[in-house]
Write a protein that binds this DNA or RNA. Structure first.
Length: 887
RNA sequence: GGGCGUUUAGCUCAGCUGGGAGAGCGCUACCCUUACAAGGUAGAUGUCGGGGGUUCAAUCCCCUCAACGCCCACCA
């Protein structure tokens, strides 16, 4: 019988992806709706930089979040996923600055602040949404009406309010302190933005004269000889016998011949270097502390661009690298450099610029985070917020339990300008949410605003609040702040636990006294197949958009989801995407198979008494999968969820149920056909339902066929466990039936039978339920293993001699092929099986003869082992019997 | 220097509260069988990093060593 099928043989994702995304948008499918759970599910999307391009990290983040969102939505939560973009101060400013330079040969100072910021906005309007359209290609089902940009009015209000409140509380203050100065950006950056890298350098051993002890020379080891111009002391450990007598005397710095005191400070490590330390409070964090303790003056020898200033006349105008060479030359000439040794040491680099960070004293704004950190730590300790996987809380704790004040001011133009105002007439300085008209003290109108902007993370830290309208009451009401805050879960990578998660916890709890999320799921970082970080310089990046083009979004998403559990790295090999593309195609072809029978299918399942054994089986298996998928997704085990449905589709539905259906669908019993068509359709609806959160496009496409586009799959209820479908007995029997079928195929293969060769099979078993099951399934063996005829008997019946055969733990299978088989081959097969079974048997037998095992092992384990022993014994005696038949 | 993590089949990884080692990809042989060659059927492959301990029983718990990776930390 020819079956018409007008569906394409391979599934092509192009076209259908955009189609369905648009349908979902048109149907407002991404908007929160009240559902059967009577609970909200809220999540914010980590806002990508407006300058960003979609990379694998985004793709993974989008996949895990969208899977979760679709799952929760289908489960009946009022689901809100909030998208947005980040202004990303530094990177956006430098992108536009470069562009302006390229086009007009002007830098930002040539344009002036107002004009330059205008250019950035213009750039943002034109190019800032590229990342958004790329996210849509991934299928993200977020509510775009909530989309927020970190420089929008509400986040700006949030930033101002938070700043002003903390300022008035005294938690935000301005101070002249040593900060991490990035000479490339010409801005301060926070501790968290400094990356320490191992750098090859030298230890320089310098001679310092002691004024009071002519002829005496102190040897000081340093990695930064160029900073001697900023030295204001020499320090030794007060307990160091070698030097303690020098404390209070005076050292003379080489080259500049300045006199500085020799001081004692516990910080000095007697073992390290020479035990003598040059103290440079203006350019070293430890020295700054020593300086504070000992009241030392601070000398700044650097300009903002990283060149040395007039306080270091010999190296004025040079940058550190050249300055160091120059100083080395001068010291050599003077004979003050005794030795230069190779030395590898960590050096701070700017996270964005990758420039060497110069510690420099500068007036900056800081947040005192002591109290906020403590609150944030407690929230995790007492379970108000939980990390998945739990281990990440250690990373979180380690940072928050050692809080340092956060430097929040940046000398940039793109960002939230600090809402602090100064009066030119008097010395007044105050913070205000609204731009003031006059001085709070003297009423003068001659005011100016602090020119600095805030660290980007200051506004990102308020993201869970500001995306829901805070602090604007009208907006909060419109956006449902009370319902949607706190968020249910935050999904992000471990690289921004400090930057972002910790800050949101601190800031969110400061404002609302509630943790901004219940769960934080930390997903892996995507690496290449060899486990290396994807980077431009290595050229090992995999572009998600290329992959989508090549294999489709669904395949890409399934791959990422299948690789996401509680692991910290995801090593991605494009071959895996290809493999899952094949799976998507398999699903499509399974659908192609049932498609012609859909019009026979009824909407409701038939009464249970009409279910075939195989129907009971496939529904019981489906039910098991539904249970496991729900459990897995609740725990963010996307890997388990993927493997469950993958195995069901491949190894249960396609390999067996479809094969077992052919006999019926091609048969003549119309009633049976209708029932089977109904079953196939029912199962398929459940399969695409279960898969939809992971692979939304193909499932929605198939759903369209199954339901004649009367409804959207995205809005269906997710399949859950249904105890009425449970049937462990039929599952057990079916597994044995599968064993038998595979056994027959195995025998066929062992005697090189062609697929077209029909056979006669004799099965011997003492398991009556199995005998019944096999008997009822006997007609299917024709389709499954080309069995023409056969018998099922008990084991004590007479068996064929010199046959091809195979023994399982529950039955013996014979294919009588007198004269056609190679006796030696068969004997060897049996012998090999015997060896293996004997080994298995010995293992369990050893346990049974172990008195300690019998005395200590729990009852159920003992029973299990005893049963196994019996099975192996039976199998052995069957094998023995067969072997004898060949004698 | 402190902390965390990893080490299981050729590759990428799962293995939950200890009780006969798993998946995907790859590989081998045979098959263009009317859903699918982006496929089917059958098959091979592991001293579960080394050593020690607890236990009747250890891939799983404890100790120790080794290799690799990550994070934090003051550029003497």
């Amino acid at each position: 019988m020819e079956i018409e099928n007008n569906l394409p043989k391979t599934f092509s994702p192009e076209g259908i992806e955009d189609k369905w995304y648009q349908r979902w948008m048109d149907a407002q499918s991404f908007k929160p709706k009240k559902g059967k759970q009577n609970q909200t599910f809220t999540m914010i999307m980590p806002p990508p930089n407006v300058t960003g391009k979609l990379h694998m990290g985004h793709a993974l983040n989008a996949t895990t979040m969208d899977t979760l969102t679709r799952y929760k939505r289908m489960k009946g939560f009022e689901t809100l996923w909030i998208p947005g973009t980040d202004h990303a101060g530094i990177s956006t400013q430098s992108v536009v600055e470069k562009l302006v330079w390229k086009q007009e040969k002007k830098n930002r100072h040539d344009l002036g602040r107002e004009e330059f910021v205008k250019r950035i906005w213009a750039w943002k309007e034109e190019y800032g949404s590229e990342i958004v359209s790329q996210q849509k290609k991934m299928g993200v089902s977020c509510d775009w009406d909530y989309s927020t940009f970190t420089l929008d009015e509400i986040p700006n209000k949030a930033v101002k309010k938070f700043f002003v409140d903390l300022f008035n509380e005294g938690l935000i203050y301005q101070s002249d302190r040593l900060v991490n100065w990035d000479p490339a950006l010409q801005s301060a950056i926070s501790d968290a933005e400094v990356e320490h890298k191992e750098v090859k350098g030298f230890f320089y051993y310098l001679k310092y004269k002691v004024k009071e002890e002519p002829g005496m020379e102190l040897i000081i080891a340093t990695t930064r000889p160029e900073t001697i111009f900023a030295d204001t002391a020499v320090a030794v450990n007060p307990n160091d016998e070698r030097f303690k007598d020098l404390i209070g005397k005076t050292a003379i710095i080489p080259i500049c011949n300045r006199e500085v005191p020799i001081i004692g400070d516990e910080h000095v490590d007697i073992e390290k270097g020479t035990g003598c330390l040059k103290v440079t409070p203006g350019h070293d964090f430890n020295d700054f502390e020593i300086g504070k303790r000992n009241d030392l003056p601070i000398i700044n020898i650097l300009n903002l661009d990283g060149t040395y200033n007039k306080n270091a006349p010999e190296i004025e105008g040079l940058k550190t690298k050249d300055a160091r060479k120059k100083v080395e030359e001068i010291l050599l000439e003077l004979g003050e450099l005794i030795e230069k040794k190779d030395h590898v040491h960590p050096v701070g680099h700017g996270e964005r610029s990758d420039e060497i960070i110069e510690p420099m004293v500068s007036k900056q704004w800081f947040v005192n985070t002591t109290a906020m950190s403590e609150t944030a730590v407690k929230a995790v300790e007492n379970g108000e917020m939980t990390f998945f996987p739990k281990g990440w809380e250690n990373t979180y704790f380690s940072w928050l339990r050692n809080p340092k004040d956060w430097c929040i001011s940046r000398q940039l133009w793109w960002g939230h300008q600090i809402p602090v105002y100064y009066c030119r007439e008097c010395d007044a300085k105050w913070a205000a949410e609204e731009t003031p008209e006059e001085c709070v003290e003297c009423k003068s109108e001659n005011l100016f605003q602090d020119p600095d902007v805030l660290d980007t993370w200051f506004s990102s830290g308020l993201w869970p609040l500001s995306t829901l309208g805070w602090p604007d009451e009208k907006a909060m009401k419109e956006k449902g702040f009370d319902r949607f805050y706190p968020n249910t879960v935050l999904v992000t990578g471990y690289d921004i636990i400090f930057f972002w998660v910790a800050r949101m916890m601190m800031m969110g709890m400061k404002v609302t006294e509630k943790a901004p999320f219940e769960h934080v799921y930390i997903h892996a970082i995507v690496r290449d197949k060899q486990g290396r970080k994807m980077s431009k310089s290595l050229g090992n990046g995999i572009d998600p958009l290329d992959m989508i083009k090549q294999y489709g979004t669904d395949a890409m998403r399934f791959t990422l989801a299948a690789g996401s559990g509680y692991n910290r790295d995801l090593n991605l090999d494009p071959e895996r995407i290809e493999g899952y593309r094949n799976f998507v195609n398999k699903l499509w072809n399974a659908f192609r198979f049932i498609h012609p029978y859909l019009d026979k299918a009824k909407d409701e399942l038939p009464v249970k008494s009409e279910w075939h054994l195989h129907d009971k089986w496939i529904l019981a298996e489906l039910n098991t999968v539904a249970k496991k998928m729900n459990e897995s997704l609740d725990l963010y085990r996307y890997d388990d969820a993927c493997s469950e449905i993958y195995q069901y589709v491949y190894d249960k539905f396609c390999s067996w149920y479809i094969e077992l259906s052919k006999n019926i669908l091609n048969g003549s019993n119309e009633k049976e056909k209708i029932i089977r068509a109904t079953m196939l359709k029912f199962c398929f609806k459940k399969i695409v339902n279960l898969l939809h959160p992971i692979t939304p496009f193909i499932t929605e496409e198939i759903w369209g066929y199954l339901e004649n586009e009367k409804s959207l799959l995205i809005a269906q209820e997710y399949v859950e466990f249904d105890h009425t479908l449970e049937n462990s007995e039929v599952q057990e029997m079916m597994n044995k039936f599968i064993d038998i079928t595979t056994g027959i195929r195995n025998i066929r293969s062992s005697v090189n039978l062609k697929p077209k060769d029909e056979i006669d099979v004799k099965i011997f078993t003492d398991d009556k339920r199995l005998a019944k099951f096999v008997y009822e399934s006997r007609h299917f063996l024709k389709d499954l293993a080309n069995v023409k005829s056969g018998t099922i008997r008990s084991k004590n019946a007479e068996k064929p001699k010199k046959s091809a055969s195979l023994v399982t733990t529950h039955c013996e299978i014979f294919i009588p092929l007198e004269g056609l088989i190679d006796i030696n081959d068969q004997v060897n097969r049996i012998k090999k099986d015997m060896e293996k079974t004997q080994a298995d048997y010995k293992k369990v037998e050893a346990k049974l003869s172990n008195m300690n095992f019998m005395a200590n092992a729990p009852e159920e384990v003992r029973t299990e082992v005893i049963e196994k022993a019996k099975l192996f014994q039976d199998k052995l005696s069957s094998l023995n019997e067969i072997l004898e038949s060949f004698q």
